[in-house]
């Protein structure tokens, strides 16, 4: 039994319109996604804008209703009404994309970080303050910070406040949605290092959503690649970066900017070759609606969306 198991998850949003605002159809934001994560590991979710990454994360944590499928966390089915219990919600937390807008500017750091604690535990003012100060120390902020407001911190520090809030209830799983996209590289490095440190310390599991493949490669053990609500490929970091099989993954990997300017011409050539392959073999990899096929395994760890043989 896995730590987190997502089975054939579907999340559809109705498209409304017409005379009586009827449902005209569905946006299949997540359309049959399955994966599992082992405890203590980091699983990366990558894909183009609008491919359903955030929706998947929000569905796991219960912020989006699930159309069908299952989410099993430590064997408990989160989708069945019964287990929507407080203790499970406490174990899963989310770090949001934007450190500038995800913290309420009118609240002091104390109130921001204490909010989840207040929802789940009854602590005295004194106990609460002490707990928040410990958390801030863990994320490398001074205990005096509790009386400050978000605008008094830099972007990296603000993201740490978000992390302090996310770990306040000692969760087991953190869903990190683009946690460093808005940060410049040096601050980004600070937040990534820190996430790795607390992962070891607290045996945390991460579902790490990002469009930056350099960051994903640095952080993740396993990676799933999404395209229009479906998986096109899944594998270990090595499978995805050294041996990509699906044409969309190849295109994604080829698009990563190379930090060495000497490789410019080579990189351009490579990208053009991949683009040509993409155009030529598009019909082998996508069905008549332009959607990915079901996953077939190509090795113990590596799954690729290919048409069924025969």
């Amino acid at each position: 039994m896995g730590f987190l198991e997502v089975e054939d998850l579907k999340v559809y949003f109705p498209i409304k319109g017409g005379l009586f605002n009827r449902t005209l159809g569905n946006i299949k934001a997540v359309d049959g996604v399955s994966f599992s994560i082992e405890q203590g590991k980091t699983y990366g979710l990558v894909g183009e804008s609008g491919s359903g990454k955030t929706t998947t994360g929000r569905a796991i944590i219960g912020l989006n209703d699930i159309t069908s499928g299952k989410v099993l966390f430590e064997g408990k089915d989160l989708t069945s009404k019964k287990s929507k219990t407080a203790s499970v919600r406490k174990d899963i937390q989310m770090i949001f994309q934007d450190p500038y807008s995800s913290l309420n500017p009118k609240k002091r750091v104390l109130d921001i970080v204490a909010e989840p604690i207040r929802n789940f535990e009854k602590l005295s003012k004194q106990e609460e303050k002490k707990r928040v100060q410990e958390l801030l120390e863990m994320v490398g902020l001074s205990p005096e910070s509790i009386l400050k407001y978000p605008h008094e911190f830099s972007g990296g520090q603000r993201q740490r406040i978000g992390v302090a809030r996310a770990i306040a209830l000692k969760p087991k799983l953190i869903i990190a949605d683009e946690p460093v996209s808005a940060l410049d590289v040096s601050v980004q490095a600070q937040v990534l290092n820190f996430m790795q440190d607390i992962q070891k310390e607290l045996n945390l599991t991460y579902l790490f959503i990002s469009h930056d493949l350099g960051v994903v490669k640095h952080m993740c053990d396993e990676i799933g690649i999404m395209y229009k609500g479906r998986y096109v490929e899944q594998g270990t970091k090595q499978d995805i970066f050294e041996n990509p099989q699906h044409i969309y993954t190849k295109r994604l990997v080829a698009a990563i900017p190379d930090i060495d300017p000497r490789h410019r011409a080579e990189q351009k050539q490579f990208r053009e070759d991949v683009q040509r392959e993409y155009e030529q073999s598009y019909n082998d990899y996508f069905d008549s609606e332009g959607l990915a096929y079901g996953l077939q395994s190509v090795s113990d760890t590596h799954l690729v969306a290919l048409p069924e043989k025969g």
Binding site: V185, S186, A189, L192, G214, V215, K217, H218, I256, I259
Partner: peptide
């Protein structure tokens, strides 16, 4: 320092 803080691909 800046170059050193980039996750190396």
């Amino acid at each position: 320092s800046l170059l050193n803080s980039v996750p190396n691909t």
